[in-house]
């Protein structure tokens, strides 16, 4: 069972702001979903390897060359709604002064 404290804690880990109403709404919903996941314990997976890639590709390398026709630095900077300063996005202070 997930409780409201766990929901708030996980939201904090995810850097996700939640309103009190959202916490109330999500707690039973996510609790139900996670309870359903217990079904996997029915499967005996002793000695079964994990799958994270399904076509068997390993260590794919690309030639070290610049591709043409990519977005320019200026175009990429235009994607930000924050102020741009010296070709960089200006953000708020990360550490309190």
């Amino acid at each position: 069972m997930l409780n409201e404290d766990t929901i708030r804690y996980v939201a904090k880990l995810a850097r996700l702001g939640l309103t009190d109403a959202e916490v109330k709404k999500f707690t039973p919903q996510l609790s139900g979903v996670m309870e359903y996941m217990e079904i996997l314990n029915e499967v005996d997976t002793k000695n079964v390897p994990e799958t994270s890639q399904v076509t068997g590709l390993k260590d794919v390398f690309a030639n070290d060359e610049v591709l043409k026709g990519q977005a320019s630095r200026e175009e990429l900077l235009e994607c930000s709604e924050l102020p741009v300063d010296s070709k960089q996005v200006r953000v708020m202070a990360a550490i309190k002064q």
């Binding site: 880990l13 995810a14 996700l16 996510l30």
Partner: peptide, 15 residues
Amino acid sequence: DEIKRRIMIGTYVLS
């Protein structure tokens, strides 16, 4: 809402 739910599930199962 649905994205928030899934971010929460994902963060929880990876914690």
